[in-house]
Each structure stands twice: as structure tokens, then as C-alpha cells.
Amino acid sequence: MIRHIVAKTAEIPAGTHRIVDVSGRQVGVFNVNGEFFALLNRCPHGGAELCKGAVTALVQPSGVGQYAVSRKGEFLRCPWHGWEFEIRSGQSYCDPARIKARKIDVAVERGEELVKGPYVAESYDVTVEDDYVVLSL
């Protein structure tokens, strides 16, 4: 497992995400209310670039004719067939036991720790005073 520094935390504010390239693999890095999560940019259903889908809320299971949303920003809707994935777990909302988007280990680490290495950070000069998003894969 190699640690890859992919962004400064400040570059992915809460409610945003970005797709990064990690040794040829595309990974979506999401900041959900200050917590970071990462998913492989590939839908487990049919191969779409999952992380290019819309970040959405959960449309709650409800009574008939009632429409309500909750957990804003915690779900990802695949841009092809619209399957919904919980960003935190990668699980499909409809079929969580069977269908999961591939989760990537993600951590936020202080520059002063990181400079001790080892890590891969092709496009980053790590400075001790910043925080970084680090993916392990």
C-alpha cells in the first residue's frame, strides 16, 4: 500500500469533490461536511465514471405521495443509470449488501508528519504548515 498525497485539504472545501489521478487510477475525493471520503471513479454496475455523477441528498423512503430529502450531500448518483451510492460507505442505497463502489482509504495528515515519508506526491511540495488528503492504495 502506497500513500499518495493528492490535495491540500483546503483545496477541497466541504460540499465539494475532485477527481484525482493516482498512478493511472481515477479516484473521487469528497469532502462531506468536513470529513473526507474517496471512491474509485468507476461504477460497480456498468462501468460509468461514477464520481462525475451528481452529489445529492437522500430521497427518503416515505409515505405515498410524500417527498422529503435528508442527508444533503451524502450521496452520489451515477451519471448513467442513476444508482445511488452512499459516499461514506460506497454502498448502493437500494442493494447495499451486494453492490458497493470501491472505497479508497483516505486520511488527512499534517505536513509536519508527512515530510517524514514515505509518500508519493507527484505534484505537491509538502510544507509543514498545511494539511493534506492522503490516499492509500
Binding site: 460509468a48 465514471e49 462525475k52 455523477g53 451528481a54 448518483r77 451519471p79 448513467w80 443509470h81 442513476g82
Partner: peptide
Amino acid sequence: RMMARGMRAD
């Protein structure tokens, strides 16, 4: 339609 007027959103 659902997704993006029935289209792949991408």
C-alpha cells in the same frame, strides 16, 4: 424522464 432528460449525464 429521470436522469438528464433520459440521457447519460456525461
